[in-house]
Write a protein that binds this DNA or RNA. Structure first.
Lengths: 350, 350
DNA sequence: GTACGGAAGAAAAACGTTTTTGTGTAGCTG
DNA sequence: CAGCTACACAAAAACGTTTTTCTTCCGTAC
């Protein structure tokens, strides 16, 4: 008994105890085959009493399904560490995806980096992958493609226009929301600060910014800061922007850059939102904690996770031809982009 | 060929192509058996040319090892969501653990919550578990124990004094470091703010605080705030502390509480560190971003992950009898506990 | 009385490895 | 030259399931 529990009872143990064959046990438990309700119930009772759980590997081997998917964060891989940067979105997504996959009786495996070194033992046996923020010509995507492993991506892969199994925000639309908001709040000129990773987010937002400037007859002012430079990179670009002449507003794609830029400029005496509006394209602890809090676009993470997992399941079942899923980012209107307010309202932001 | 890659080449395909038996392939690739170097090399070449990777499930089935471990975050499970609270430590640890397990050719599976609902399909087949911050009488620990699945915990399980496979900070020592630091910086009385989760961290820190007060002849002032109340809970306790009479320093276990408490008190005109010193027992984005930055104890996450994985591997190999691993928390001395400094030094904190 | 058919379940094959056991040849010893 | 050892590899068993095929029993229709 102790021994039986030690390494898990097998289907044979259950069969013996219930006085039936292993076929009957398997069929009873999986609701298949042609088994009388009485037997089925009896077998179920015995199994649950023994705490029997089918061995995942044996089951997987037979059905050639692992019942688990992989999650790989390209943006973090590129950062070279799993530090606090971009933590928000990673953590929330990993958690939400784990919850979501669990609902479907799938495991979620964290896969650090498939693109270098020997492959992790499990990586090629997983049923599918969620690839978060693939780069241009991402080697991980190429590997999955070559192996014929189903995958979906968060954000489209900028190097694969034909690939359609992705979920993302409508970055163009979101960018316009922000720019229109800033313009309506009184910003005459708007500087744009993007990252340097070659992913769709950076590409699409910048393209939308340029298009918007063209339409509205404004002169584009574009800055780039490497993602990995974080708050400090933001500070530096803040100084550069100030040196080039203060705009009416700054739109920084990442929250860390926005926070750093705002910080540097505030230290030079710039008042936010009095003299300058600041907004970021991705909400994070930095934008929330800044004084004043910085307006931001925000991902509806549970929705994103749900859409990704759902789509991946479709792909794994062989369904194809669906269109990409475009989610709408929420715009969080905070103090940093409130037009013409006075001091005493800054007490607690929004 | 396309078909072969489609679902992965098997050991038979490699054997056929190399003109040997599957035994020889297996032995060649795993460096076992008695195979001439020439054959070994040839088989290796064929295998890698075909992109052959042994099926994880077949291998696992045979050797009854899954080559993957589970990671379960009890503190987050108790929060009921995987939101931004406590993100720092989760994210860093998950990443560091993933990197660490990868080095040992192990997969890392995220397991949301084992204590309710039907068991995830994989959960009972994993080779071992890292349980982060188990509660008192944690049901997840009980389950693993009953199943005989090896596990280690971060922080000891307060309900299992005999269990020794854990890694943690020396909370008692760390608490004394903080308290002595605060006292040396001039704090006459020190209020303590702990959480309400029934885990070892809360227990041990509070016990150490009480002991320290006894030794130094100070009157303990203890407050509790539920972990899930976050910054807002911190604000409320800040107000309560002020109502009870301002101490010389406040030591909040969690960074969110510290930030909230500091914020609330600052809004009432309290100057930090001029009038009051504030320190937290766990560094986070909140403590770093606060104005002024809040001194904190910090986990050396990579070291913690390394120790946990190392210990788990030992346990999985059947080694036992080792003592718990006690790590030393770093104390990050920041502006919020700097005695008697003047205004212009607050520019950028530390 | 025999053939048919469906119900209920058992036997056996299959999944892709690893590991144990077998086998044939070559080289050496006495 | 018989017998032993070492070598290089092959055959087969085993891991614990799921699934396909096979058996048995029984009732019913012809």
């Amino acid at each position: 008994m102790a021994r039986e529990l030690q390494h898990g009872a097998t289907i044979w143990d259950v069969a013996r105890k219930a006085g039936v064959s292993i076929t009957t046990v398997s069929h009873s438990l999986n609701g298949k085959g042609n088994i009388s309700e009485a037997t089925r119930e009896r077998v179920r009772a015995v199994a649950s009493e023994m705490g029997y759980v089918a061995d995942a590997m044996a089951r997987g081997l037979r059905s050639s399904k692992m019942n688990a998917i992989g999650l790989v964060f390209r943006s973090l891989d590129s950062l070279g560490n799993y530090g606090p940067n971009g933590v928000d979105v990673f953590m929330k997504l990993a958690g939400a995806a784990a919850a979501e996959t669990l609902n479907r009786n799938l495991g979620l495996m964290l896969v650090p980096d498939l693109s270098r070194g020997p492959l992790p033992p499990f990586s090629m046996s997983l049923d599918g992958y969620i690839v978060f923020a693939p780069h241009l010509d991402d080697p991980v995507v190429a590997l999955l493609e070559k192996r014929g492993i189903p995958y979906v991506t968060w954000d489209r892969d900028p190097g694969r226009p034909d690939f359609r199994n992705w979920v993302a925000h409508d970055d163009a639309a979101s960018t316009r929301v922000v720019l229109n908001h800033l313009a309506a709040a009184g910003a005459g000129s708007i500087a744009y600060v993007g990252g340097t990773d070659r992913n769709a987010w950076n590409f699409d937002c910048e393209a939308a910014y340029v298009a918007w400037c063209l339409e509205t007859g404004k002169e584009p002012r574009i800055y780039h800061v490497p993602e990995r430079d974080g708050v400090e990179g933001g500070r530096q670009v803040g100084a550069r922007i100030l040196g080039d002449g203060m705009p009416g507003a700054v739109f920084c794609l990442t929250g860390r850059h926005a926070s750093g830029a705002a910080q540097a400029m505030q230290e030079c005496g710039v008042r936010i939102p009095g003299d300058l509006l600041v907004c970021t394209g991705s909400d994070s602890e930095h934008s929330r904690q800044h004084k004043p809090p910085i307006s931001a676009l925000d991902v509806d993470i549970p929705a994103a996770a749900a859409a990704l997992v759902e789509r991946l399941c479709e792909v794994m079942e062989g369904k194809s031809g669906s269109d990409p899923v475009l989610l709408v980012a929420r715009f969080l209107h905070r103090k940093s982009t409130s037009p013409g307010k006075t001091r005493n309202q800054q007490k607690r932001g929004f």
